[in-house]
C-alpha cells in the first residue's frame, strides 16, 4: 500500500513539473495568440487571456501594406513552398535510389562527398550565387527561391537511402522477372514503398521553405512578390507599425499552416528526426 502511494505521489509531481515547464516554454506562443485578440491599449500586457476578443485585428492585419493584402503574400509563399517541396522530394528520392540500390563505379566516393556537404554552411556561397543569379536575370523572381531548392538535401537522401536499403531485394527481382528495368523499378517498387520517408522529407522541406527569410530577403524586391516571412518582417520596424494587434494576428496566421501540418503528420516528423538526425 505504502509503496503504491509513494509511486502515485511521484507520478503527480512528475506531471506537475512537466506541465509547469511546458507552460513556461509555450508562454511566448500563447502570448502571441492571446495578444492577437487584445485591444490596442493592452496589446503588450503579459496576460494570456485577452481583455476583449477582437477578430478585427485579423481583418486589419490582412489589409497588409499599401494596396497589397496578405492574400498575395500567402499565395506567394504557397507557390514557392509547394513547388520547391515537390521538386526536392522527388529528386531526393531519385538520388536515394541511385545511392541505395544501384551498384556503380564511384558510388562510394560520391556518397562520401554528399555526407561531407551535410556540414557545409550555405551562407558561404551566398555572394557567388547572388552574382550568378544576377547574371541570369533572376533577381526579383521566384527562380532563385525555388530552383536551388531542387538540389536533393543530404539529410533527405540519407533518410531515404535507409528506407531503400530496408526493402527486400526480392521485390526488385520479382519486378525484373515481370520485365521491369532499372528505371521502372524506381517508379513501381521504390517510390510506393518509401512513402513514410517521402512524407517526412516533404514536411520538412515545406517548413523550411515556408519559413525561409534569408533567400527572399536577398532576391525579392517588389512587394507584390513578397512571401509571408518577408511581409511579416515589415512589422518588425517599430516606426512603421504601431498596430500590435494586427501584427500578432498575422504572425499567428503565418504559423497556422505549420501547426496544422504538425497536428496531422507529427508521427512522421518525430520518427524522421530520430532515424536520421535531421535538423529541426
Amino acid at each position: 500500500m505504502k509503496m503504491s502511494d509513494n509511486k502515485h505521489l511521484k507520478s503527480v509531481i512528475y506531471h506537475i513539473c512537466i506541465l509547469t515547464l511546458g507552460l513556461m516554454m509555450f508562454y511566448p506562443v500563447l502570448w502571441m495568440i492571446a495578444s492577437s485578440f487584445k485591444g490596442h491599449a493592452n496589446a503588450l500586457s503579459p496576460s494570456l487571456i485577452p481583455d476583449q476578443f477582437l477578430i478585427q485585428n485579423y481583418f486589419q492585419g490582412w489589409q497588409g501594406f499599401g494596396d497589397l493584402t496578405f492574400a498575395t503574400f500567402f499565395k506567394n509563399s504557397f507557390i514557392i513552398a509547394t513547388t520547391a517541396t515537390i521538386g526536392q522530394v522527388i529528386l531526393s528520392a531519385m538520388t536515394a535510389y541511385g545511392f541505395g540500390r544501384i551498384q556503380f563505379k564511384g558510388r562510394n566516393f560520391w556518397f562520401s562527398v554528399m555526407i561531407i556537404t551535410l556540414l557545409f554552411p550555405q551562407q558561404v556561397v551566398m555572394i557567388p550565387q547572388y552574382l550568378m543569379f544576377n547574371q541570369l536575370g533572376w533577381i526579383d523572381t521566384f527562380k532563385p527561391l525555388i530552383l536551388p531548392k531542387f538540389t536533393p538535401l543530404p539529410f533527405f537522401v540519407f533518410l531515404m537511402v535507409q528506407f531503400v536499403r530496408g526493402l527486400p531485394r526480392e521485390l526488385d527481382e520479382a519486378a525484373r522477372i515481370d520485365g521491369c528495368g532499372v528505371y521502372m523499378i524506381f517508379f513501381k517498387i521504390i517510390l510506393p514503398n518509401i512513402k513514410p520517408a517521402l512524407i517526412t522529407a516533404a514536411i520538412f522541406s515545406f517548413y523550411w521553405t515556408w519559413q525561409d527569410f534569408f533567400t527572399p530577403l536577398l532576391y525579392i524586391q517588389s512587394t507584390e512578390l513578397y512571401p509571408v516571412s518577408l511581409a511579416l518582417s515589415l512589422f518588425a520596424d517599430p516606426q512603421a507599425v504601431t498596430n500590435w494587434g494586427a501584427m500578432f494576428a498575422m504572425a499567428t496566421l503565418s504559423l497556422l499552416p505549420i501547426f496544422l501540418i504538425f497536428i496531422f503528420f507529427q508521427r512522421y516528423l518525430v520518427e524522421g528526426i530520430a532515424t536520421s538526425g535531421l535538423k529541426g
Partner: peptide, 25 residues
C-alpha cells in the same frame, strides 16, 4: 549499363552540388 543508370539517378544531386556549391565556392 548500371553505371550509367546510377549516374542518371544521382544526377539531380550531382548537378546541384556542382552548380550551387562547388562552382560558387
Amino acid at each position: 549499363r548500371t553505371t550509367l543508370a546510377g549516374y542518371i539517378f544521382i544526377s539531380p544531386w550531382l548537378f546541384g552540388f556542382l552548380a550551387f556549391m562547388l562552382v560558387p565556392v
